[in-house]
Computed example of a mutant assay.
Amino acid sequence: MLEASDKPIALIDCNNFYVSCERLFDTKLHGIPVIVLSNNDGCAVARSDDYKESE
């Protein structure tokens, strides 16, 4: 069994991950500001860098 100090640690930077996924499946979104909303409550879950710059 692994001790607490022996456990591997992973750091994953998913900055704009959902925007990247949307752009992968819909190529018309390349080059335009994109914001991705959650399914149930309308909260923004991801914003593209160009969207952040336009604010």
Rank of each mutant, 00 (worst) to 15 (best):
E3Q: 09
I32P: 00
V36W: 05
N16F: 04
C21F: 08
N16L: 03
E22N: 08
N39Y: 05
R23E: 10
I12K: 06
E53C: 10
M1F: 09
V19C: 15
S48R: 00
Y18W: 06
E3V: 04
D13T: 08
S38Y: 07
P33M: 02
N40S: 11
M1K: 10
Y51R: 09
A4L: 12
G31V: 09
D41M: 08
K7W: 08
A44Q: 10
D50A: 11
D6R: 07
A10W: 12
K28I: 02
E3I: 02
N40W: 02
I12A: 11
T27Q: 14
G42H: 06
D50K: 12
I32C: 07
E22R: 09
F17C: 13
G42N: 05
V36G: 06
G31T: 07
N40G: 06
E55K: 14
V19D: 04
D49F: 09
A4Q: 10
A4S: 08
H30V: 14
D6I: 00
H30C: 11
E3T: 12
N39I: 00
R47T: 09
D50L: 15
I35G: 00
F17K: 13
Y51N: 07
N40I: 03
S48W: 00
D6S: 04
S54N: 13
D41P: 02
I35F: 00
C21Y: 06
E55A: 09
D13F: 07
L29N: 03
D26H: 13
I32G: 01
D6W: 00
C43E: 12
D26A: 13
R47N: 11
A46S: 15
T27N: 12
E55L: 15
K52P: 01
G31H: 03
D49T: 14
K7D: 04
A44V: 15
S20V: 09
N16A: 15
F25K: 04
A44M: 15
C14H: 01
S5W: 05
C14K: 03
Y51E: 15
P33K: 02
L24N: 06
N16Y: 07
D13M: 07
A46T: 09
S48I: 01
L29P: 01
H30M: 15
L2E: 13
E3A: 10
K28V: 04
A46H: 12
A10M: 12
A44S: 13
E55Y: 12
T27F: 04
S5N: 11
D41Q: 08
N40D: 08
V19K: 05
A44D: 03
Y51T: 01
N39C: 02
S20I: 07
S38R: 08
V34Y: 01
D50Q: 11
Y18V: 01
H30D: 15
E22W: 06
I12E: 09
G42I: 08
D50G: 06
L2R: 14
L37F: 11
R23F: 13
C14F: 05
A44P: 08
M1S: 12
V34G: 03
L2Q: 13
P33T: 02
R23M: 11
I9Y: 14
L37Q: 07
I32W: 03
